[in-house]
Amino acid sequence: MALLEIKNLQVRVEEREILHGLTLTIDAGKVHAIMGPNGSGKSTLSHVIAGKPGYEVTGGEILFKGEDLLAMAPDERAAKGVFLAFQYPVEIPGVATMTFLRTALNAQRKARGEEEYSTPDFLKKVREISKQLSIPQDMLKRGVNVGFSGGEKKRNEVLQMALFQPSLCILDEMDSGLDIDALRIAADGVNALRSPERSMVVITHYQRLLNYIVPDVVHVMSKGRVVKSGGKELAHELEASGYAQFEDAA
């Protein structure tokens, strides 16, 4: 069954059209990779799905579990299971990571009409996950992403993904700025979250990441459209031949 259906999506930023009728369907449990050259609109797509202000949708629709996603406020989308792992996670000085995790988790649970986690349950859960991701406890006491290395910031994103258990995870350029060891830890964390109910959208410029997170479907984006879709072998093809062929096709 389709978890996410994007139909003929047209998006403008400051009067300029960036996405020109993008169509994409993602089934539950599948991992889709979106590849494409810089400026092709990958981040724009992820922002529109998450509901970042500043984007004007001029046409098309997005259905999430059959519901009109564009009609929901961004925090409502988060509570319904949309998670975006940012390419550049922001720093929030003075807000301890632990406090942030708890505030966010409880906000989502409250929005879904669920009870808040008790402190011991919450702590237990966070400890478990952070151990798997090799996140030291003292990192959780520091301000959100403040003074974190690139790898630590990405791991913190995966930590939140594991904690919130979203049904749709969008990873925007998770590999950027990571060395191979850091990449492996983050990718292992993501792979551990693969499940028949959870879909993922892995956005990347390079094929490298897809050696660690092996996708079911690969899409190529160019100039605001999906121009080709295929199996995981499409990524290898691209690695060999580059994006130039699609630039013309678009």
Partner: peptide, 11 residues
Amino acid sequence: VLFYCVQRGLS
């Protein structure tokens, strides 16, 4: 920063 928080479920 505000959008980051909102994406994680805060109003």
